[in-house]
């Protein structure tokens, strides 16, 4: 009834595939990032949201997690909106927590756990947007 034994979604596999880019694909993503960086940042919050979200998604493809997190956070700071930025941040914070745990970095675990706590408050705000 609720797919109790379903382990992985197709989306997970798709994301894994995205992170194994060939050098040509990687260059294409980097070029897109350069193009976006060469454009001046838009004024309206809506455009800023999309601008940073796009950059975040591109950095995510390159597996540059800190850059991706930074852009997703800036995108939500520009406009509070439910979309890829929020969804990706939820998973990226968790991933960074795991990475920090693997190297035993307590301060980083704490930092990203607090970020997850912040998403709790953001979640309430987003519900009424």
């Amino acid at each position: 009834m609720f797919n109790f034994f379903k382990k992985k979604t197709t989306k997970d596999t798709k994301e894994e595939k995205l992170h194994n880019l060939s050098s040509a694909e990687r260059s294409a993503v980097e070029e897109k990032i350069n193009n976006l960086n060469n454009h001046p940042e838009a004024d309206s919050p809506k455009e800023q949201y999309h601008y940073h979200e796009q950059l975040g998604l591109l950095y995510l493809q390159l597996d540059e997690l800190e850059e991706a997190i930074d852009h997703f956070e800036r995108s939500l700071a520009a406009e509070l909106k439910m979309g890829d930025s929020y969804k990706k941040l939820l998973h990226l914070y968790h991933k960074k927590c795991q990475e920090s745990a693997a190297v035993g970095n307590d301060d980083q675990i704490d930092y990203y756990m607090n970020k997850l706590d912040e998403l709790r408050n953001l979640g309430k705000k987003l519900t009424f947007k």
Partner: peptide, 22 residues
């Protein structure tokens, strides 16, 4: 939670409900 994350490296964190509201 720091100790938990280190002792259970592949842990799935169970978070408070408002995270899922959006």
């Amino acid at each position: 939670r720091g100790i938990a994350m280190k002792l259970v490296p592949d842990a799935k964190p169970a978070l408070d409900c408002p995270v899922f509201f959006p």
